[in-house]
């Protein structure tokens, strides 16, 4: 009945093809910025890495992420361009950019003029805060019966509560407990 929640992993892989999907990648990381300007460091790091990689110049890719102002040592930095098996295919790995949630590192593959794949080789994980930049938690079923007094909650979401039904509602109990 319950669907397992995907756990944050140390390394995640996102393979996309074509230019249009780059927009999705940038949006993915830029998602939170509309509500929290403090997330901009992460957005800049990834967005710049993708944009810079369009030239297939490994130098510009590696240095691109430094514009976030928080670049890490970059162990797989500027010089990591390598030719793949297919003719004209180039793979470039950008520097790992430190964000407040952890390092972000992107590897792109081009066929000379078009980006054919983007891998996220390093992704922030683990401390729970990475959810801030990419997703919301899935509601978790509560097994035990809870009353407002024992529930460790701040607010209740439920089918539309009218003012007449309010006094019977959990939210009412919460409000009274807090006043």
């Amino acid at each position: 009945m319950s669907t397992p929640v995907p756990e944050a992993r140390r390394r995640r892989r996102l393979v996309v093809t074509g230019m249009s999907t780059l927009t999705a990648l940038v949006l993915l990381f830029g998602y939170h910025t509309s509500t929290d300007p403090t997330a901009s460091a992460g957005t800049v790091a990834v967005g710049t890495a993708v944009a810079g990689s369009g030239s297939t110049s490994s130098g510009s890719t590696g240095s691109g992420s430094t514009s976030s102002g928080s670049t890490s040592s970059g162990s797989t930095g500027s010089g990591s361009a390598s030719s793949g098996s297919a003719a004209g295919t180039t793979t470039v790995t950008g520097d790992a950019a430190d964000t407040r949630w952890g390092p972000v590192q992107v590897r792109i593959t081009t066929d000379g003029s078009t980006i054919t794949a983007v891998d996220v080789v390093e992704f922030p994980t683990g401390n729970g805060r990475d959810q801030e930049i990419n997703a919301y938690a899935v509601p978790e079923l509560v097994q035990e019966t809870l009353s407002a007094q024992s529930a460790d909650i701040d607010m209740v979401s439920g089918a539309t509560v009218t003012s007449t039904g309010y006094l019977q509602s959990l939210q009412s109990a919460l409000d009274q407990a807090g006043l």
């Binding site: 805060r129 801030e132 919301y136 509601p139 509560v142 809870l146 009353s147 701040d154 607010m155």
Partner: peptide, 28 residues
């Protein structure tokens, strides 16, 4: 981002005095 998220309870539609689920939400 380091602050505790808001703890949101989801009402049980068959027993509105009870919670069916919980979900933490920081901003959303």
């Amino acid at each position: 981002p380091a602050a505790e998220p808001w703890r949101i309870g989801i009402e049980d539609p068959f027993a509105p005095q009870r919670l069916l689920a919980r979900v933490p939400v920081s901003t959303g």
